[in-house]
Design a protein around this nucleic acid. Structure first.
Lengths: 196, 196
DNA sequence: TTTTGTTGATTGATCCGTCAATAAAAAATA
DNA sequence: TATTTTTTATTGACGGATCAATCAACAAAA
């Protein structure tokens, strides 16, 4: 029963289905039929709207990154001090919307795929750079530049590391613990310098 | 020209070929033919010695872990103080033998595959637990138990995070920088307590 | 003559991407 | 308004490619 104006709805449904399929399977080894089935359409329709599978995967990653970016922008509106800004950036990565098993699995899978796909690699680099500069914007108010750089790098590595360990259901059990761990690091690194 | 006693040589060659193939492709999506070709044999022979592809991949991961374990044991012989033991554990993960692009790519790929394969997941959990206890054995000599636990967790996350970022050729450019970053963390965490 | 090593050829399954066909809505035309 | 035409939505069926795994066959050593 074809109704007009389906395109945006189908695209969104297919992207959601892609995330959940990847999340469940734990890798990008999901078939177009599997994804289309979850979205309640035929695989031919998925191809109709996205062309090749690569493009659906790319669109999916773009969608995840866009959500993260939006969350980040929202989170960066309220904090006033530099120190609070750093905490806000960290917290976003472990918010309910981001720290979901499905999303984490997708992140990990996309990280791997990025080694094959230049387009995906570019996307992830944009995210990495943005995370770094967001962290830095807070840290430079507290630490000298070169040390702020190093702390930002360590914080980013901690975030990635906690994600990967979460994907294996090993190590940190939940978002609260993960945040506490990073905050503990930041506190020992910043407390003496800034004294609040 | 069949010579007797080929089995161990072929097995080893096939495992090496698997690592290099995965390292180059950046994922486990390598064909048996590709691997066999690199090892200079037919794909049929790879199946002859390893049965299914899964088992070759599993054997490869086991091999990587065994090398890491051996390196770790060696590294843990020399250090005398608790503090030095912690540094030794960290250093092994970034030694020339371990911090190779191929090996890093393989690690990452296996992390993803572990979400599908229970056998692989078990292997990685063994490694994670061992890393944790190795770190802890040094840290408990310096910090109270609960805090030692947290520092070990953070250090492990840092190692994983730096690996993943290295795989993307983003962030830390080399092993020396990576080690310095973790040592910097450890130093701020431990210096006040242990005073050398 | 049995064991060990080895491969080319083949089978069977999976899966991406295409295409022709169908049907409803919208637009254009009479 | 009634009709034709075009656009949008949708799918089943299929071609073609890839690959894991098997097997029969062959050769050298024991």
């Amino acid at each position: 029963m074809p109704k007009v104006g389906m395109e945006p709805l189908r695209r969104r449904a297919l992207i959601d289905a892609t995330i959940s399929a990847i999340g469940e399977r734990g890798s990008l080894d999901v078939t177009m039929s599997e994804i289309a089935g979850r979205a309640g359409v035929s695989s031919a329709l998925a191809h109709h709207y996205f062309g090749a599978k690569d493009e659906l995967l790319l669109a999916t990653m773009r969608h995840i990154l866009a959500e993260l970016t939006a969350d980040m922008r929202r989170a960066l509106r309220s904090p006033s001090t530099a120190r609070q800004r750093v905490s806000a950036v960290v917290a976003v990565n472990f918010s309910d919307a981001q720290f979901q098993p499905e999303t984490i699995a997708a992140w990990l899978a996309f990280y791997v795929e990025a080694q094959k796909s230049a387009a995906l690699r570019r996307l992830l680099k944009v995210y990495a750079r943005r995370l770094h500069s967001n962290l830095l914007s807070g840290l430079t108010g507290i630490l000298p530049r070169s040390e702020a750089d190093r702390v930002a790098e360590a914080t980013a590595a901690l975030i990635d590391g906690l994600y990967i360990r979460r994907a294996l259901k090993d190590g940190v059990p939940n978002a609260v613990t993960a945040i506490a761990l990073i905050e503990d690091y930041l506190e020992t690194k910043l407390s003496r310098r800034s004294a609040q």
